Amino acid sequence: MSDSKTVFDAMLNRFDADEADDMEAIFQFDLDDADSYHLSIADGSCIMGEGEHDDPTVTLSMDLATLKEVMSGELDGMAAFMQGKIRADGDIMLATKLTQIFPN
């Protein structure tokens, strides 16, 4: 199992359906140094897919270490974005809700 899959599996386990209520979104994660994944959120559930999605709502590009730090709470996502560690394309406001939807 790849390191990145482990991180996404952990995110799925922490998925907060209440926070994602009424949300329909596809988060594409393009990892510079690992496999890419996307998370599809709809109807209070979250499904993980491998590779690139055809039509993501927001695409987040970073390296695996940055993803781990943001999802563990070590690094603030907005700070990482401002420092250039995360590049976002699409609905950037949606990206700010990531740690609410997947609390640690």
Score class of each variant (00 low, 15 high):
I47S: 07
G49L: 10
S72T: 06
P103M: 03
K97Y: 09
M78Y: 01
A10L: 15
R14L: 12
G90Y: 07
D91M: 10
S2P: 02
I101K: 12
P56L: 07
M62G: 03
I47E: 07
D33Y: 14
F27R: 15
D21T: 05
D22F: 02
D18C: 10
E24S: 10
T66H: 02
A17L: 11
D35F: 14
L75W: 08
V58H: 12
E19D: 06
S40R: 10
D54L: 12
M11C: 06
G77N: 03
M62N: 01
D21V: 05
S61E: 03
K85N: 08
D43T: 02
A80T: 15
C46G: 06
D89K: 00
Y37R: 07
D91G: 09
D54P: 11
S2K: 00
I92P: 05
Q28P: 02
L94C: 10
G49R: 01
M23T: 13
L12K: 05
E19N: 06
A88L: 03
T6A: 15
Q28T: 03
S72Q: 03
A88V: 04
E19I: 14
F8A: 02
N104I: 15
M71D: 07
S61Y: 08
T59W: 00
E69M: 13
K68C: 12
T96R: 07
D30M: 05
L31Q: 00
S61K: 01
D18W: 13
S40G: 10
S61R: 00
A80P: 09
T66N: 04
Q28N: 02
M62K: 02
G73E: 08
I47Q: 05
D43P: 03
S36A: 01
M71C: 11
D76G: 13
D3T: 13
D35L: 09
S72I: 08
D33E: 10
D21N: 04
Y37G: 05
D30L: 05
D21W: 06
D76Q: 09
P56A: 12
G49E: 04
K97M: 13
Q100Y: 14
N13R: 12
A20N: 02
A25E: 11
M93A: 10
E69W: 14
M23W: 15
N13Y: 14
D55Y: 11
E50D: 06
D63I: 01
V7K: 00
D54E: 09
D63E: 01
D91W: 09
S2I: 08
Q28L: 00
G51D: 08
P56N: 15
